[in-house]
């Protein structure tokens, strides 16, 4: 476990260094993720290795690590004040539009390239009827 965590922190550090040196506009851990992905591919890393064990262990509890930031909602909710309505509608509306556009663009392009997939198995109930 500790060996795997050391690797993960090491790649985070590497990501942080790359971001700082190249002055990239993304967070260090995101660059660390891409670097680790390249490393795992190049090494043909297998599932019993320490990075996979530690990584899977952390990801099982990913939601735990968001709690401290999430509690900030309680502390700052009042900041929105009288603008609650426009902000709520704008946030929800653009969330939905973003979801639709990303999902349908990806699926539409797959179809255009002739490689659509259906992973959910059983067709929806109304289609089967």
């Amino acid at each position: 476990m500790i060996a795997g965590l050391t690797w993960l922190v090491g790649f985070q550090l590497l990501g942080e260094l790359v971001v700082r040196v190249l002055d990239l506009p993304v967070p260090g851990p995101v660059v660390g993720m891409l670097l680790l992905f390249a490393y795992l591919r190049l090494r043909r890393y297998d599932d019993s290795g320490s990075i996979v064990i530690a990584g899977s262990g952390l990801l099982r509890h990913l939601q735990l690590f968001f709690i401290p930031a999430g509690v900030g909602v309680v502390a700052f909710a009042s900041v929105l004040g009288r603008d609650v309505l426009p902000v709520t509608v704008a946030v929800l509306g653009s969330w939905f539009l973003g979801l639709v556009v990303v999902g349908w663009t990806a699926v539409g392009l797959e179809r255009l390239l002739g490689r659509p997939r259906d992973d959910l198995g059983d067709p929806p109930a109304e289609a089967a009827a």
Binding site: L5, V9, M33, L36, A54, S56, L59
Partner: peptide, 13 residues
């Protein structure tokens, strides 16, 4: 949260 974000490379791999 940082190391866990890095760990997202694991399912991707």
């Amino acid at each position: 949260l940082g190391p866990a974000t890095v760990a997202l490379a694991v399912p991707l791999h």
